[in-house]
Amino acid sequence: MSMVSLLQSLLIPLEVGLVITAFIVTTSDSIQNIITTYRIQSCLLAIVTVTTAMIRAPAGVNVSVLIFFIFILPVMLAVSIEWLLIRATVSAVAGHNPNVDARKVWLKYKAAQRTQTHSIWFLALVLLAFLIAFQVFASGLTTAGQTEAFIEQERIGMMVFLALHLIGLYNMGIKQDIISQVIGLLTMDQGLYLAVVKIVAIPVPAGFFVLSLYFYTLITIFILVFLLPRVRRVTQTIDLSEIADRSSLKG
């Protein structure tokens, strides 16, 4: 078995892992679980990114720098996300441990979730992603010289990034707290990473696409570091329905 086919056989379980983690994020009723699962998803994504880039990199082209630039983003988010969300949930108060305080706040949002409904929606969105990947891309993936297995594998990759986008969007719409809503945005972000590697890696992602990833991450970090703590401070809550009830921005 060649190195490339070995990597290819590794890729599908890893990509399925991304979808499974997205399922847990969607159906979980605990913010702490959602964050932990997101961190696992980020690590999986980093491995998928590197593996895909290694499979696609043509002989003689040095892609290590670009791979590094793409790899480092999900790893950084996996490492820092919990700290960022703790900072967004509670203000630093002398004598208090923000980790403990934030987890107490997160526990309050362990409200009963409609797991069954979310599961059905999740399956519907994955099915939609499947249809788009296998129908729309059917004509666009008949590149000469590529094996049927390679093309199938590409379509699965495309299905996964579309599914991550749709599931992220769904989570942003249904979650009842700001933290989970941001995780929804970050899940869409994961889909974007995978999309860069899967769609435009010709033969490797061009510099501009990598730049766009960094720029989008900058926006996400801006939201996490800057906007989220301020919104929580002025609204005194992370509960979206409470914010909406008290809001005068209506009509």
Binding site: H165, L169, Q181, L185, M188, I219, I223, L227, V231
Partner: peptide
């Protein structure tokens, strides 16, 4: 409070949309 809430909504909604534009 209203200004921060509006900024939050603006950034979250447009950032979500703009991902689709990149896609």
């Amino acid at each position: 409070r209203n200004a921060w809430e509006a900024a939050w909504k603006y950034l979250i909604i447009t950032s979500t949309g703009i991902v689709l534009a990149l896609l």
